[in-house]
Amino acid sequence: MTTLEINDLHVSVETEDGPKEILKGVTLTIKAGETHAIMGPNGSGKSTLAYSIAGHPKYTVTSGSVTLDGEDVLEMSVDERARAGLFLAMQYPVEVPGVSVSNFLRTAKTAIDGQAPKLRTWVKDVNAALEQLNLDPSFGTRSVNEGFSGGEKKRHEIAQLELLDPKVAVLDETDSGLDIDALKVVSEGVNRFRGREGKGVLLITHYTRILRYIEPTYVHVFVDGKVAESGGPELAEELEANGYDRFLKVNA
């Protein structure tokens, strides 16, 4: 059974004034079948957690551990992490000019599976995934993320999630900048993924809105680089009513 275990994770970034600690001891365990929502104010380090799990070179892990089914994730390169079963849906997906979506998807699928997908079923799978996310089939010929609207970028991320089929998905503010229709389409995609056997989800968000469509198993309030409080879905409702003030005051 899949388990992503984050233990006392400390992460720094380089700044002009030397290294600055962003994550100050994060401990979380995400098991198969669970969805963990991480909620927090701007600047609390939510995205740093996402990028650190995925291995972005900008972030330096100074102590702590991350394991996926007992394997040391921090020892792996970025692509090895993806092949081990981690997926990061990014808040700001990056443009790759001149590389078509279909070429990109096929290359990624080949890398993850260790072999090229069977052409006929693959084309069918891609078209189905695009269609379910309200993306036109001609989408495949466009350059990755180039000229995409904000909504298209996020839907494209979720199409990748469904096609690459990781063990654990980290969704970094996938809901930000989406109108309500796009939010529903994206949430349905995440729910289809969650419905598969043995999947874990770490859903990072600033707003409670998406949690009406994707019901979390656990909610964690993230403040100043660590988890300030954990609870069930009712914690999200409290945040909806009262905002982050209570946690920020404690912190101050």
């Binding site: 390169s77 970025v78 993806a82 997906p93 990624a108």
Partner: peptide, 8 residues
């Protein structure tokens, strides 16, 4: 990073 995060 984006491409590598997709296993490439």
């Amino acid at each position: 990073f984006y491409l590598q995060s997709r296993g490439v």
